[in-house]
Design a protein around this nucleic acid. Structure first.
Length: 468
RNA sequence: GGCCCGUUCGUCUAAUGGUUAGGACUCAUGGUUUUCAUCCAUGCAAUAGGAGUUCGAUCCUCCUACGGGCUACCA
């Protein structure tokens, strides 16, 4: 088998959203798994809506995810003359024809059919006109579109996900391949470009499933070799509607900013609409490449569930190396940990990492170790720092102040004394102490934390908390 | 309206012509951690509905319902 060539073909009318990322992922996985090529084509022919800044956003997001594409980015708009050339060729060859029906005429006919509750079909008035007749009408100054001459018969193809799809060509109008301004339409150019790029596998969202027969008809009219098609089910929001801007976060970039690693995103996305045929849920990229298979891709749409994403992210966080975490965080927040000793940074991350679900969780907690001054939420202060808590903190301050052996065992005995002194369990002691020390209601083990913070910081914070 | 696609716990999914319909997330409860998180255990929870084929259908067929997509001189 030849090495597959696949492509991801977003239109630059917005940022890269979750659905697009999943499509890109499956393309990329398939290419990687089979030693093929993953190409990137930007479908920027809709001049009204396409913006170059979106191209940058999309390529940035793809790079962040690690979907490195082969060759240069292909801009569809650059293929304009090629598209026009093919249209002309098809007119000459008789596989397409000029249609002189105006948009207004068609709209009127469409409305009429609707009124009569009849099925509307584009009239094939000009289908069999000769090229001379075309010229005569052009000379009259009539404008025209170009339509594909769809033959009788059945168009059938085997989708890697959906199986055999069959459509009677009668259901299809002679659709427009070039508008009256000469610009080619989507279902036409996509076929030409995919063919020109030698795409072997067209992997895309299933919103394109119904258009596939039209594209196949273009391939056939030109005698081109058909690619294999694989359509992916949609990703839905929690309301079961197609994921769109109405939903909370659909932009890949937003998830990056929320502190999810690319690995976690990819891991979660891979599980939407695909299963590894095993109970494994946590994958690194290589495992995913090895396991991916179209036979395990679902046909039904999947709902995006941020709760599960968080869980996947937490699982990934437990496996990720401290040095990697530091790199990732520094990419995310360049001000993080500046002027901090690198051994200290390592220790902080090692302490905090396993109880964090996202990089942002880590950033939040690690702040406590980097900043001299921490803030205490007023409401929580009132709730936690009652008289007995203040007494505990005062006593602890006193004991720590005269303790020079800053070790776990000495700290433990200090807390033992406090426990007997106040007749409280360790849990009751920890809560106010942690709050005094960090301003947080959660965090790493208390002894580890005290050791890492160091004596000065601990004493300062304890005495500050007493005054709150 | 027409065409195409789909429908298993709330969510992601597994299974097979014969299972107590399995796992994961969420949620609840308990345990571990003398805190929180993690972790572990237990529990709640599903084959859209109706016909047919069959000794037996979640699985095969048909119908209905529901959902999605396409049906544009958008991509």
């Amino acid at each position: 088998m030849n090495k597959p060539i696949v492509r991801f073909a977003p239109s630059p009318t917005g940022y890269l959203h979750i659905g697009g990322a999943r499509t890109a992922l499956f393309n990329w996985l398939y290419a990687k798994k089979n030693g093929g090529k993953f190409l990137l084509r930007i479908e920027d022919t809709d001049l009204e809506r396409s913006k170059s800044e979106y191209i940058d956003q999309i390529t940035d997001a793809l790079s962040w995810l690690g979907f490195d594409w082969n060759d240069n980015v292909i801009l569809q708009s650059k293929n304009k003359s090629r598209h026009e050339e093919v249209v002309n060729h098809m007119i000459q060859a008789g596989t397409a024809y000029r249609c002189f029906l105006s948009k207004e005429e068609l709209d009127a006919l469409r409305k009429e059919s609707e009124k009569k509750k009849e099925l509307f079909r584009v009239p094939k008035t000009y289908r069999d006109y000769s090229l001379e007749q075309h010229q005569a009408l052009i000379d009259e100054g009539k404008s025209f579109t170009v339509r594909l001459k769809i033959p009788d018969g059945i168009t059938e193809f085997t989708d890697l996900v959906y199986g055999t799809i069959k459509v009677n060509n009668k259901e299809l109008d002679d659709f427009i391949i070039a508008r009256s301004d000469g610009s080619p339409t989507y279902n036409f150019v996509v076929a030409i470009d995919d063919s020109d790029m030698n795409i072997s596998h067209v992997i895309r969202g299933d919103d394109h499933l119904a258009n596939t027969p039209k594209q196949i008809l273009v391939y056939k009219a030109l005698g081109l070799t058909l690619p294999t098609f694989a359509h992916l089910p949609m990703i839905l929001g929690s309301d079961k509607k197609r994921l769109s801007k109405r939903h909370a976060a659909t932009n890949v970039q937003e998830y990056k900013e929320k502190g999810f690693t690319a690995t976690a995103m990819i891991n979660y996305l891979s599980l939407l609409g695909w299963n590894p045929d095993s109970d494994q849920e946590i994958f690194n990229i290589n495992e995913l490449v090895g396991a991916f298979n179209f036979s395990q891709v679902q046909k039904k749409p999947a709902t995006f569930d941020e709760k599960k994403l968080l869980w996947v992210s937490g699982q990934q966080m437990a496996q990720i190396e401290v040095s990697t975490v530091i790199k990732e965080i520094e990419i995310l927040d360049s001000s993080w940990g500046v002027n901090q000793d690198s051994k200290y940074k390592n220790d902080v991350i090692a302490l905090v990492k396993d109880r964090s679900k996202t990089l942002n969780d880590i950033i939040e907690v690690s702040d406590v170790f980097f900043k001299e001054d921490i803030s205490h939420n007023e409401e929580m202060s009132k709730k936690i720092l009652d008289d007995s808590s203040i007494q505990i903190i005062t006593d602890l301050h006193e004991a720590l102040n005269i303790e020079d052996n800053w070790r776990k065992d000495t700290l433990e005995s200090i807390f033992d004394n406090l426990m007997t002194q106040h007749e409280l369990g360790l849990g009751k002691l920890i809560k106010p102490v942690r709050f005094a020390l960090t301003g947080l209601g959660y965090g790493p083990g208390i002894f580890d934390m005290i050791i890492l913070l160091g004596k000065d910081r601990c004493l300062n914070r304890l005495s500050k908390a007493v005054k709150l």
